[in-house]
Amino acid sequence: MDMQAPSQPRTKVWFDGACPLCIREIGVMKRLDRQGAIDFVDVSASADPSCPIDQSELLARFHAEENGRVLSGAEAFAAMWRAIPVLRPLGLISRNRAVLAVLERLYILFLRVRPRLQKLLR
C-alpha cells in the first residue's frame, strides 16, 4: 500500500511570457521558489484550460490561484509571495486590508507605465 503524504495546496501563477518585464520577474520568482510550490503558467500563446479567466484579462492584469481562489493584482502578488519562504512575511503582511489597498494602488500606477517599461526592455 502506497502511503504518500498528501500534497500541499499549490499556488498557480499565470503570466505573460511575451512580456520582457514579466519574464524577468517570473525568472526571479522561479529561482526563489526552491520548493516548487508554484505552478507558473505562460498564457501568452494560448489560454490555460484550467483557468476560469479569459486570456485577454490574464494578459492585462496579474492573476494567481491560491487554495482554489483566483486572485488578481496586488492580492495575486501577495499569494505568490506567501508561497515562497523568503517572501512569505511580505505576503502575510499583505493580508492586512490597508497594506493590500496601498499595494493595489501602486500596482494600478505600475500598469499605467508598464507599456513604456516593456518597450525599454525589448
Rank of each mutant, 00 (worst) to 15 (best):
S94M: 09
W14H: 08
V28C: 04
D16C: 04
A79P: 08
H63Y: 13
V70Q: 11
V41L: 02
R82L: 09
C22D: 02
L120K: 12
A45I: 05
C51N: 09
L103C: 12
L109E: 12
M29V: 02
F62I: 10
Q8D: 10
M3K: 10
G91Q: 02
K12A: 13
A74E: 03
G73E: 11
L121F: 12
D33V: 08
S94V: 10
R24A: 10
R112P: 00
F62N: 00
R24F: 05
A78Q: 08
L87Y: 06
L109G: 15
A45Q: 13
V99E: 06
I26Y: 00
Q8P: 06
F110C: 02
I23C: 05
A37M: 11
T11W: 01
V41N: 03
M3S: 11
L58D: 01
L87H: 08
A78T: 12
I108E: 14
F110P: 02
A64T: 05
E25G: 05
G27F: 10
L121G: 03
S7K: 14
A60P: 00
P115E: 10
E25H: 12
L59G: 01
G17F: 02
A83D: 02
E57T: 15
A47L: 05
M1K: 09
R116I: 09
R116G: 14
M80R: 06
L87V: 12
A60W: 04
M1V: 12
M1E: 13
A78E: 10
G36N: 04
C22T: 02
G36W: 03
E75S: 15
M80K: 08
A37G: 11
R116K: 14
K12S: 15
E65G: 00
R112D: 07
G68S: 12
F110E: 03
E104W: 08
V113I: 15
L87C: 10
E57M: 11
R97A: 15
D42C: 05
Y107H: 11
P20R: 05
V113E: 06
L59P: 01
L21G: 00
D42F: 01
G17E: 01
A79W: 05
T11K: 05
L100W: 07
V28T: 13
I53T: 12
E65I: 05
L100G: 04
I84C: 05
D42P: 03
L121D: 01
L58W: 00
A64M: 03
W81Q: 07
M3L: 13
I26W: 01
E25I: 06
R114C: 07
S94C: 12
A98V: 15
V99Y: 06
L71G: 12
Q55R: 15
V41F: 03
M3N: 12
L58N: 02
L59C: 00
F40N: 04
L59W: 01
S56K: 13
A64L: 03
V102G: 09
R31Y: 04
